[in-house]
Amino acid sequence: MEPRKMTAAEAAQQLRRPTGDDGVKMGVQMSRSNRLIYEMTLDFLQLKTGDQVLELGMGNGHFIPALFEKENNLQYTGLDLSDVMVQEAIVANADAIRAGRVQILEGTADTIPFDSGVFTKVFAVNVLYFWQPPTVTLQEIYRVLLPEGEVILAFRTRRTMEKLAFVDHGFTLYDTETVQEMLQNIGFRVTEIQTAVEPPKAAADGSMLVQLENVCIRGVKTLSSI
């Protein structure tokens, strides 16, 4: 007997916060479906020697080794809402954790568990849709960044995601201009925006073929306070 297919609402919940065995499977599927936007983001990060990097919503940690291929001398912290993804990421990156180069934590992006002015870069790939409200998380990102530190948000545009059935269940979709305005309202200086359209592929829940537009946007923390 074939396994029962998830409903759109169930898929949305697993995409937001993977749980149980289905969550582990969804984490693998997200690693596949997010490959191109992650590769784009890793180039866009422009990692430098000594960077202190925080990723919000790192999922199963599949792409963490690729950061160190870009720049070996950095410290990485991953924070995720899902206990299942945290455990998967810890197992997948055990050697780097033992070496003190990586730490993986369970927590929420709206209350980042670090002092102010800790990180040189904070980035998030395909999780902006779940921040409710986004301004709270963006203020937290601003707080934990050092002066002139950078936030890099990678997301897919509203017009290329709105036909997906699961986005009707807890997703807030954005266009580039709205995200740029949100960052500027917090106090970030937007310095670079990059876009790319992916080849057609299966949606993360396997429901349909999609052609998604990826956006990376860079905001720099200004010296003035929010």
Rank of each mutant, 00 (worst) to 15 (best):
Y129R: 04
F119I: 08
S116K: 04
Y174F: 15
E181A: 06
V144M: 10
N126C: 12
T195W: 02
T172W: 08
E192D: 13
D168C: 13
V215L: 04
R189T: 14
A203I: 09
V210K: 13
F166H: 14
E148I: 00
G117Y: 02
E162G: 05
N214P: 02
E198V: 08
V190N: 08
T172L: 12
C216L: 11
R189L: 12
E198C: 10
L153T: 07
G206L: 06
T120Q: 09
L183G: 05
D205L: 04
V136H: 10
V210E: 15
E150A: 14
R156A: 09
T195I: 08
Q180I: 07
M161H: 12
L128W: 00
F123V: 03
N214Y: 09
L183V: 04
R143D: 05
E177I: 11
C216P: 12
T176D: 03
R158M: 07
D115V: 11
F171M: 15
V125P: 05
A165I: 04
E162Q: 09
E198H: 11
I141W: 01
Y129W: 01
A196M: 07
G149H: 03
R158W: 08
F123W: 09
R158L: 11
V127R: 01
R189F: 09
V136Y: 06
S116Y: 02
R156S: 13
R143H: 09
I186R: 05
F188R: 05
P199E: 10
T176I: 13
F155M: 03
L146R: 13
A196L: 14
P134E: 11
R158F: 03
R158Y: 01
G170F: 05
E198A: 14
W131A: 02
K163S: 13
Y129M: 08
T191P: 06
I193D: 00
I186P: 04
G149M: 04
K121Q: 13
H169D: 12
Q184V: 09
D175G: 14
F130K: 02
L138T: 00
P200L: 06
V118Y: 02
M182D: 09
E148M: 09
G187W: 00
T178W: 08
F166I: 04
E140C: 04
D168S: 13
F123G: 01
L146F: 00
T172I: 13
K121A: 00
E177M: 07
E177V: 08
E177C: 03
F171S: 11
Q211E: 15
W131P: 01
L145W: 00
V127A: 06
F171G: 09
L146C: 10
L138F: 02
T195D: 05
A203R: 12
K163R: 07
L212E: 09
P147M: 07
D175S: 04
L212R: 02
F166D: 11
D168P: 01
A154P: 00
N214C: 11
T120M: 10
Q139G: 08
G187F: 00
L128Y: 03
M161R: 13
T176W: 04
L146I: 10
D168G: 14
D168N: 14
E148V: 10
A202H: 09
R143G: 12
T195G: 01
E181P: 03
V144R: 07
L138R: 03
W131N: 03
Q194D: 07
V118W: 08
E181T: 15
V167Y: 01
